[in-house]
Design a protein around this nucleic acid. Structure first.
Lengths: 367, 367
DNA sequence: TCCGGAAGTTTGATCGATCAAATCGTAAGT
DNA sequence: ACTTACGATTTGATCGATCAAACTTCCGGA
């Protein structure tokens, strides 16, 4: 088979030099229109396509972003990361970037992988997920000046640190919307089913519910605590604890939950208890929520992905901004999620309050 | 910042030539052990890491596999591909390979992307999913002799075509196991809830149920047809049709379903009808099935991923076998799935037949 | 007329690795 | 002892692009 055409070949056909071909590709504006046209014709004619590795070797740019993909799929909510990945791949493609996946057993291993990918000019930047307090990965990336964006706020650290770009979903706003929605339907004893205190994301989501309840009913911290139930993540865990709740004298009207898993477990318990009009709202709007008709807070992962790339490449840029160069403010993006209200299925029917206007919430019938 | 070390630097420190360093990396067996040790020490000392792009430029190999990631997440079962992706990333890493993602709007666009990635030496091979009859992508890949593996059998074409490597899950076996399991519990009127005829995967799965029913009860085609219900993929669709079924005089004991979506819909209808001991079995073992305690057929995606790489790289190889070179037979892998039996939750409780031995089925309590 | 300078284009060097062929040294064969 | 052969290592060329600097035109101003 004939060799693939190179810049050299294109140059010969267009009767120009290598460099001019290169310029047509990389900075067309400096080439005289007439010449440019000739070169473009030659490119089309030969079916020329630049050799990415050669370009990378020279420019030390890869037009590729690395992200770790965990081996384990952590159940029902694992899909959030997958959906983010889909959105990211798509948005990245729009800017001529691609996504490369890798795995790692632990943070040290991940750093080792960062190093390999960076040194091999395989990727220009990383996206790190599941960040923790005093994360060694972040420290390494900052120290080595490798561009990166974290998906998830730096809980407990400086949210505005210039070194640390991040995107996240505003959990507070999500649960606030969910709670307000229930309030607008005339419900008052709205409980919160969350994770044990100490998780940044979980605590953030709880504050949204707290704020909405306090604004409307002026509850004291003690009263709020009385409406709060916590459990580890997991459908059976949630079902168990909500069953216990229903066994006692809870006096609740509805539940706002920190995740779809907990909401699903709660729904099952609600259903079990024969409570046919006890609304439950989840978080993440996973496929499961869609499937069973569970109202949930939708993280707009397309926006999250777009925000990620804006931080990495600027508003419209097509290459990663080197660390520390002309970074715009703010150095983060906090995406506001939207409540998706579903006419709940038989699993946990929600009575529609006749005249309720649902504001700007999404409303979705069972598709 | 100091330049990254190159082979040249390592060579100087180890007092050997560039090529020897290269040999230590690529064919250690031809280097005298003593020399090798010296080189390895130098590598460690300098923290040298090969520059992937330079290597790629020279060798025209990228150690990367490309796979398209669809923008849309097709509901509940979309996660199968995601789980495959996780498994693939992990297995690929074990062999020093990485996964690169891309998107495409349609088959032609995907071919264009194949071309770009191939010409740019970005990837060594592709994995194609969601293949169709007379798929133009396959034709292109075969014509261009680009190594690839299809996830999914070439339905309606030559299963043993030498040009076409594929991996797939044995749907027949999965539904056969599911049906046998129900039979072993003493159930007899076991229905099948599937997709409309014409989908390769769907038809394959139905044959497993048909075979098991025929073996045990010697049913005629007409009788089998009487036990079969079909609908398009989707939870609400399934719920609707099973509700209709229950409204009439169906006489069924249980349902084997072609997917978890349909099974979930069926479960909801069953529950609605107050049938508390009507087993439903799904297919794919999605997180949803785990969450709601639905028995389902688990596709072992780790094995599928491993099979994919075996076809691409040989049993233990660390590089992609060029098209047509020493491909072993068979040119495909058909992975046998396993039934996961769950003690079903309140959504659709399954009575345990006291003394049933479940054979080699997996048995899983609600975690 | 001559010079400065910008615009457009070309030339030579280079990125970091591997390939192919050459070289060196040593052990085996006759 | 002399050739042959092989194992181990080195040398020069090369992959395909871009960078940096040089070169050529051409125009306007003194």
């Amino acid at each position: 088979m004939a060799q693939l055409p190179t810049v050299e070949d294109v140059a010969r056909v267009a009767n120009v030099s290598r460099q001019t071909v290169s310029n047509v590709l990389n900075s067309p504006e400096i080439v005289k229109p007439e010449t440019r046209g000739r070169v473009e014709t030659a490119i089309a004619e030969l079916g020329y396509r630049p050799h990415a590795s050669a370009r990378r070797l020279r420019t030390r740019q890869s037009s590729t972003i690395g992200i770790r993909l965990d081996p384990l799929v952590n159940g029902i909510s694992g899909s959030v990361l997958d959906r983010y990945l889909h959105a990211l791949t798509e948005r990245a493609a729009e800017r001529g970037m691609r996504i490369m996946l890798f795995t790692a057993d632990d943070p040290d291993d991940e750093i080792e992988e960062f190093r390999r990918l960076r040194d091999g000019a395989d990727v220009d930047a990383f996206i790190v997920t599941a960040t923790r307090y005093a994360d060694p990965r972040i420290d390494w990336l900052v120290a080595e000046k490798v561009p990166f964006v974290a998906f998830g706020r730096p809980w407990g650290e400086d949210l505005n640190s210039p070194d640390r770009l991040w995107v996240d979903v505003d959990g507070h706003s999500g649960t606030h919307q969910a709670t307000q929605h229930l309030i607008s339907r005339g419900l008052t004893r709205i409980g919160y089913l969350g994770w044990p205190e100490g998780s940044g994301t979980g605590d953030d989501r709880r504050t949204g519910w707290e704020a909405a309840m306090t604004e409307r009913f002026g509850l004291s911290p003690a009263e709020l605590a009385g409406l709060t139930t916590t459990t580890e993540e997991g459908v059976p865990q949630a079902r168990r604890i909500v069953e216990e709740l229903f066994a006692g004298d809870h006096g609740l009207d509805a539940l706002v939950c920190v995740s779809d898993s907990l909401a699903l477990g709660a729904m099952m318990a609600v259903n079990e208890a024969g409570q046919r009009s006890f609304p439950v709202i989840g978080f993440d709007n996973t496929p499961v929520a869609q499937a069973v008709g569970l109202s949930s807070v939708e993280q707009n992962l397309g926006e999250v992905a777009a925000g990620t790339l804006e931080l990495l490449m600027g508003a419209t840029g097509r290459r990663v901004i080197p660390h520390g160069e002309g970074l715009q403010d703010p150095r983060h993006r906090l995406i506001t999620p939207k409540l998706v209200v579903r006419r709940s299925s038989h699993l946990a029917p929600v009575e529609e309050a006749g005249s309720t206007t649902a504001g700007n919430h999404n409303r979705e019938e069972n598709q």
